[in-house]
């Protein structure tokens, strides 16, 4: 029997629920930790970033108005589909991060568990982060958390799946939409995650995934006037980070600086809280 031809996959961007090639037509080679060729991936340009922000803005209204319960269900479904792709994730994480099969498996399990953990928070955030405030007058006074808007995320460079999930899930659980710039040299698990998102009821545009050079694309996201916050978790270069923070100041974006490399630790609510606004309402006590 003749040897079967290999079915090679073209890794593309994930924008507005579709998988387009880069507008620029460019691609780059992705290698494993030993330098062996893994795949070609789309190399995003500033115009892809622009399109992604437009898609994220368009999706914001629907996602933020969905009930918290519904968002939780959808995110839990993502974890279910991830579980179904477990073997694929393990292979990709092992190749991307140079891990043994066992450690890769542990990383994938931690990532899925992390997603489930965040999914559970969808309908619990307002109770925990909101409050009824004491005031000296005939009013009820409430503070309720609301999503910030469109959040750009520079995903961690080293931890290709667990790190990605740990920065992505806390952004969307509260109703934000996002443009994620995946790990530059380890993007394969992110591609697979985008396929998971596309097939698990997450509305198109809620998560948009770009792959490419952080130094090229991130400044356009940081300076974009229609992006409301930016997470610099994977902006490893200090000079670039400073540049991004300065650009982000133009429309007073919320900026989250990188603070950890240990993605296995209990994340707490800090990342969720970073991308929330607080709305306080005075309500007269009835007459």
């Amino acid at each position: 029997m003749a040897a079967r031809l290999e079915v090679r996959k073209t890794y593309k961007l994930y924008i507005g629920g579709a998988f387009p090639r880069s507008e620029s037509g460019r691609s780059y080679e992705v290698a494993d930790t030993k330098g062996r060729f893994l795949a070609n991936a789309a190399l995003a340009s500033r115009k892809d970033a622009r399109d992604a922000v437009v898609a994220a803005r368009k999706a914001f209204g629907g996602w933020t108005k969905a009930t918290a319960y519904n968002r939780g269900q959808i995110l839990y479904r993502v974890a279910e589909v991830m579980e179904g792709r477990r073997a694929q994730f393990v292979d990709e994480v092992a190749a991307a991060e140079g891990l043994t099969a066992r450690r890769a498996e542990a990383a994938v399990e931690a990532a899925i568990d992390r997603w489930v953990w965040y999914a559970g928070w969808a309908d619990k955030l307002p109770q925990v982060l909101g409050s009824t405030n004491p005031v000296a007058g005939p009013y009820y006074n409430f503070s309720v958390p609301e999503p910030t808007g469109v959040v750009a995320v520079v995903a961690p460079q080293e931890s290709s799946l667990l790190g990605l999930v740990s920065v992505l899930a806390p952004v969307i659980v509260s109703g934000n939409t996002t443009v994620v710039l995946a790990s530059e040299n380890r993007p394969l698990p992110a591609f697979t995650l985008s396929e998971v998102l596309a097939t698990s009821d997450v509305p198109g545009g809620v998560v948009n995934l770009l792959t490419g050079r952080v130094a090229e694309v991130a400044p356009w996201l940081a300076s974009h006037m229609d992006v409301n916050a930016i997470d610099l978790a994977g902006a490893d270069d200090a000079a670039l980070r400073t540049e991004l923070e300065i650009a982000a100041a133009d429309n007073v974006k919320r900026v989250r600086r990188p603070d950890t490399d240990d993605w296995t630790a209990d994340p707490g609510l800090a990342r969720i809280r970073s991308f929330l606004e607080t709305k306080t309402v005075w309500h007269p006590i009835g007459v």
Binding site: R50, V53, R57, W220, S223, H224, M225, D226, A247, D250
Partner: peptide, 12 residues
């Protein structure tokens, strides 16, 4: 606005 400021603008 994009052409005069060099950064992308938004509907706000």
């Amino acid at each position: 606005q994009k052409m005069s400021t060099g950064r992308y603008s938004g509907p706000d």
